[in-house]
Amino acid sequence: MASGISIDFVSFAFATIRVMTPLLFASMACLVYTKGGIDSIATEGIMLMCAMAGAAGAWLLGGPFQGLLFGMATGVALSFLFGYATLSLKANPVLAGIALNILAGGLTIFVIYYLTGEKGSTQSLSSGTLPNVRVPLLADVPVLGRILSGHNVLTYVSLLTVAALHFFLYKTRSGLRLRAAGENPQAAESVGLSVTRCKYLALFIAGALAGLGGAFMSLGYVSFFSKNMTAGRGFIGMAAESMGHGVPGGVLLATLLFSVSDALSVQLQMMSLPPELMQLMPYLVTIVAIAVYSRHRARRRAAGPAADPKEVKP
């Protein structure tokens, strides 16, 4: 019995890391969007399109790595499209994001129908998957090795992304400018920075991250695209960003929370507990966490009147 539980724990921890990969890409994409002062609601649609582009690209270009690049390029292109709609055409960002999500839902099916003749999935195409990595040394450590080694290469990329983003946002020139332009565009403009350029940099990075997350779904998580396969992961990214207070470490923790309960629901399903109730838990926790956090922040702010000088317009 004792050994049974420990096996469960190892496979559970392994599963947690596996399901965390696309979520982490999503929440990091949302983090970059938010830091750049851009609404992140389109992440869901961009990821879905990238999942399709990844599988289709791998099949058309002859390999999963090509597919991955194609997926990332798609992510960047869509992110720029969203930027153009909201920054240049001045479309309402929430509505434009909803539009992109609707577009992704339909267009992915439209395209795979032309590629495969079916609307459900691309299983009939052989697109392959990205390799799993056996981490030297780490793999030989008992228990830990079995949990941490042997994941898909993108899983390790996703974890490195967290550190890389922290470095980028807080240590580099472009990161500083991106944060400034996102938080107070007038201030950035007043020192001669091009806010548009900073925003497009954010759009580029976030689009590429969403592309990685989407492509992982169809080239790592499984080996094909199926319709609506991102299933709200982009929205979870939004929530994780919000719960993680907008710092990479915090967002990582919030993402981990989602991953744990996602993996747990699979485990419990095997123990024939109702999986639906487990599946709804992380969403419920998020709502409660956001409510509590927002209330706390609002209380702190509302201790007195808004004493800020107000803009007098002509």
């Binding site: 709200g232 929205f235 419920l284 709502i287 956001i290």
Partner: peptide
């Protein structure tokens, strides 16, 4: 003062 967009999506 919770952002209704995120809470409603969740």
């Amino acid at each position: 003062h919770a952002n209704e967009l995120v809470t409603s999506l969740m």
